[in-house]
């Protein structure tokens, strides 16, 4: 395994990467540094100087929320909408992509083209007709409405990611199951879906991040404060407090923390999952 041997050159590479990594973290350092500064004009003092009076009060102020709502409330709203939407995207998207990939033929090519086209569509043009549609269905201002919207908007991306992986998936397992007389549904759930895990990881992360960070859709379809999602609450700080960067940055730090912790723990699965269809 000469490939993994730790040579002086590797050490050099390690040092260089650590340096680049530290440089990469400067904005995060600034964020944390400002978030513990007391208010007033010290915020505008030297950005790199660590304050002599560090305080966590910005975090408690931030946690109480902006005029739009509390951070905790925003968290719960975002978590509910994101998790249900992602679960449905995975369930529906994998099944749809699987069908298209396995059926083949002209219809299959047409559908592939359609969903790929969907990746490029200008979603914002659909906002007003979509609002009218959702209103008629009584789904405006509801979690289920938001979930349906996200599932629809991110279906093309989900299918794009699953399709690529499916094409490279060897058929041997499915064939064996078929020989054993398993039904297509059983084959999908017992054989194919577990094999799709890496693609599922990709979908979960990409779609999850898009939904978690989305700002405009919830404003229109959920209204302002009563169902405010996390980004809406954070934006409320900016609109309201204007210059209180210490509180805004504390709010940002709180909102990002769970995602970073999640990544640290799930890293190995994610990097494998990110392969988006590249299989070792």
């Amino acid at each position: 395994m000469s490939y993994y041997r730790y040579t002086p050159r590797t050490l050099l590479r390690e040092l260089v990467m650590v340096l680049i990594g530290l440089a990469w973290m400067v904005p995060i350092f600034l964020l944390l540094n400002v978030s513990i500064k007391p208010g007033g004009f010290e915020v505008y003092g030297s950005p790199f100087a660590v304050t002599s009076k560090p305080t966590l009060s910005n975090y408690s102020t931030a946690w109480q929320g902006s005029a739009v709502g509390s951070l905790g409330h925003g968290f719960v709203n975002s978590a509910i909408i994101t998790s249900i939407s992602v679960a449905l995207l995975i369930a529906i998207g994998s099944l749809t992509a699987y069908t298209i990939a396995r059926r083949g033929g002209r219809a299959s090519r047409l559908l592939t083209g359609l969903f790929t086209f969907g990746l490029a569509l200008p979603v914002q043009l659909g906002t007003i007709p979509l609002f009218a549609e959702m209103r008629k269905l009584g789904l405006v201002g509801t979690y289920s409405g938001m979930v349906i919207i996200y599932v629809g908007l991110l279906m093309p991306l989900t299918i794009f990611l699953y399709m690529g992986f499916l094409r490279s998936l060897p058929l041997d397992y499915e064939q064996a199951a078929r020989v054993d007389g398993a039904s297509p549904l059983r084959i999908f759930f017992r054989v194919v879906f577990p094999l799709l895990r890496p693609a599922t990881g990709t979908v979960a992360i990409l779609c999850g991040l898009i939904i978690w960070n989305d700002f405009f859709t919830p404003l229109i379809f959920l209204g302002g404060n009563s169902h405010a999602t996390l980004p809406v609450v954070i934006y409320g700080f900016v609109a309201g407090l204007g210059t209180e960067w210490n509180i805004i940055f504390a709010a940002v730090a709180i909102s990002v923390a769970p995602l970073v912790i999640f990544f640290i723990f799930a890293q190995r699965q994610l990097i494998r999952g990110y392969s988006g269809g590249i299989k070792a």
Partner: peptide, 23 residues
Amino acid sequence: VKVEGIPDQNYNAVLRTQLQGGG
């Protein structure tokens, strides 16, 4: 009376979309 506070940068777009969409 339920007041929905909407951040100002998006206020106009949100209000227009909702009213134009019949809601």
